[in-house]
């Protein structure tokens, strides 16, 4: 007979339960069912490490991403408005300078004519 058969026999041989086994099983059966945890108790589970770090990171990200998106769109809008305002400003200064130049040129012409006379 091999050692393996001996081992199997040893492992599968019938053993009697302890004396208080029946009492322990009955006691467990008669126990009331465990209480359902309330919503805040379930929430507190999330606040226990290591879950807390993941929860905090996801909360921060869920706030940061929309805020960054809004900020980016605001910046884009500001840039477009700024570029438009810049073009208008350059145009306005060009027109003002040009007209002033024209007026001054006319004054010069008149001055020259007067000097000739």
């Amino acid at each position: 007979m091999s050692y393996l058969e001996d081992d199997l026999k040893m492992a599968l041989q019938r053993t009697e339960p302890s004396a208080d086994f029946v009492n322990r099983v009955l006691a467990r059966v008669n126990q009331p069912p465990p209480r359902e945890p309330s919503w805040w108790e379930r929430l507190t589970v999330l606040l226990r490490p290591p879950r807390l770090q993941w929860v905090a990171a996801s909360v921060i990200l869920s706030i940061m991403i929309p805020v960054a998106g809004v900020q980016y769109r605001k910046q884009q809008r500001m840039r477009v408005e700024g570029e438009r305002a810049k073009e208008q400003l350059m145009f306005a200064v060009r027109v003002a300078g040009n007209r002033l130049h024209r007026v001054q040129q006319k004054v010069l012409e008149m001055g020259r004519m007067e000097t000739r006379l």
């Binding site: 040009n98 002033l100 004054v107």
Partner: peptide, 28 residues
């Protein structure tokens, strides 16, 4: 502004700014 008027696409001309408020024709 006058210099910019000559600078931004319009040639610059040298002009004297009128010194008094009611000057109609500055010196050429």
């Amino acid at each position: 502004l006058s210099e910019l008027g000559g600078n931004l696409g319009v040639p610059k001309i040298d002009l004297e700014k009128p010194k008094t408020s009611n000057v109609e024709k500055p010196k050429p």
